[in-house]
Amino acid sequence: MIRCAIFDCDGTLVDSGATIHRALGIAFAEHGLTLPPRAEAQRVIGLSLVEAMAALAPAETDAGHRAMAQTYKDAFVTLRGQNQVEEPLFEGILPLLDALEERGWQLAVATGKSDRGLRHCLTAHGLHARFISLQTADRHPSKPHPSMALEAMADSGAEPANCVVIGDTGWDMGMAKAARMHAIGALWGYHDHHELRAAGADALAEAPADVLALAETMVKAAA
C-alpha cells in the first residue's frame, strides 16, 4: 500500500511568518496602503498571493491585487538577496520526516509559495530531494481548491484514503477534504484550533512528534 503525507510549507514545515509580514509591509507601503497587524495579516498565509492580497485589501481592484502580488514577490527576492529571509524549520520537523520515511511514507509538498520560493526554502534546509512531489501556486488554483493535493497524490501513486494532508490553516484542511483525503491540523502554525476544526480537520497535532501516529491511525482505519 502506497501512503503519502502532503505537507504545507509556510507555518507547517517552516516558520516564515516574520519575513512574509515584512514583505507584505513593503508591498502595501509601495501601493500607499496600511498593512493590518501581523496577527490579522498572517491569517492569509497559505493562500496564493493574489487571493491573499484580495483578502487583506478588499477595496482594491483585481488589477491592484495582481500588482500588489508582484510587488510582494519583488520584495521577497530583494530580501533574499540581502540575506534577510528567515524561514527556520519548526522544531521536530526533521525527526518527523525521518520517521515517516522509515515507515515507508512518500512525502510531498502543496504550498501557496512559488516554485522558486519553495525551491530556495527546501534547498536551504537540504530537503528538496526528500519530496517526490512539489506543488505550488505557480501551477494551481489557490487552496482550498484540491488541485495541488490531487497532483501530489497522482505523483505518489497513492489513493485518497491513503493520503494525509498536514497543514496549519483552514485552507489546508479544506483542500484535504475537497480531495477526499485525511486532514491533520498543525497547531504550531498560524491558524488556531477553532479554524482548523471548522475547516474539516480530522485531528489536531500539538507538535510534529504527534503526526506519525495520527496519520497511521487514519490510514489504517480507512483500509
Rank of each mutant, 00 (worst) to 15 (best):
C4H: 04
C4N: 06
R80Q: 09
L212D: 05
E30N: 11
L24T: 07
E216M: 01
E101M: 15
V109A: 02
V14A: 06
L79E: 01
C9W: 04
M153N: 05
T61Q: 07
A205D: 01
L196H: 03
Q106I: 11
A124D: 05
T71Y: 12
F76H: 09
G157I: 00
A5W: 07
C163G: 04
A57T: 11
E51S: 10
E216T: 03
Q70P: 04
A158I: 01
M148W: 00
G17I: 06
H145L: 08
W188T: 00
F131V: 00
A110M: 09
L196A: 07
F131Q: 00
C121F: 13
D74G: 02
Y72H: 12
T136P: 01
H140E: 06
D168G: 05
R66E: 09
M68T: 09
P146V: 12
P36M: 13
I45N: 00
M173Q: 14
H145N: 14
G126F: 03
L127N: 03
P36R: 07
I45S: 00
A59N: 10
A209W: 07
L122D: 03
M173F: 06
G185K: 09
V85A: 13
L107P: 08
R180D: 10
G112D: 02
H194N: 10
G167V: 10
G64Y: 02
G64M: 02
R180N: 07
Y190T: 00
P58L: 08
Y190G: 02
